[in-house]
Simulated assay, not measured.
Amino acid sequence: MVFRYQMDTTFPDLRQYGGAEAFLRACKPRTVLDLFTGKWTGLVMGALLDGPRRFNELRRMLDGITQKMLSQTLRTLERDGVITRTVYPTIPPRVDYELTPLGRSAMGVLQAIGGWAGEHADEVIASRLAYDERAKEPVRSV
Rank of each mutant, 00 (worst) to 15 (best):
R79M: 09
N56L: 07
D63R: 14
V124P: 04
A112G: 10
S127V: 05
M61R: 09
E78N: 07
K68A: 13
G103I: 03
S127D: 15
M61Q: 09
R60P: 00
R75F: 12
G115K: 06
R60W: 08
K68D: 11
H120N: 13
R54W: 02
R59N: 04
Y88P: 00
V87K: 11
L129V: 15
P92S: 07
A112R: 07
L110M: 09
E119H: 12
A121H: 11
M69L: 09
Q111C: 07
Y97V: 03
T76W: 03
V95L: 02
G51Q: 08
L129Q: 15
D96C: 04
L129T: 15
V82Y: 02
I113V: 15
R85S: 05
L62C: 04
G114V: 00
A126G: 12
A47D: 02
E98N: 12
R54V: 05
T76K: 15
L48S: 03
L58K: 01
R85F: 01
F55D: 00
F55I: 03
Y131W: 12
T73G: 01
R53E: 07
T100G: 01
A126I: 03
E98H: 05
A47C: 07
R85C: 00
Y131Q: 10
T76S: 14
S127T: 15
G118D: 13
Q72L: 13
A126C: 08
L129W: 07
I125E: 10
I65C: 03
V87Q: 06
Y88K: 14
A106V: 08
G51K: 08
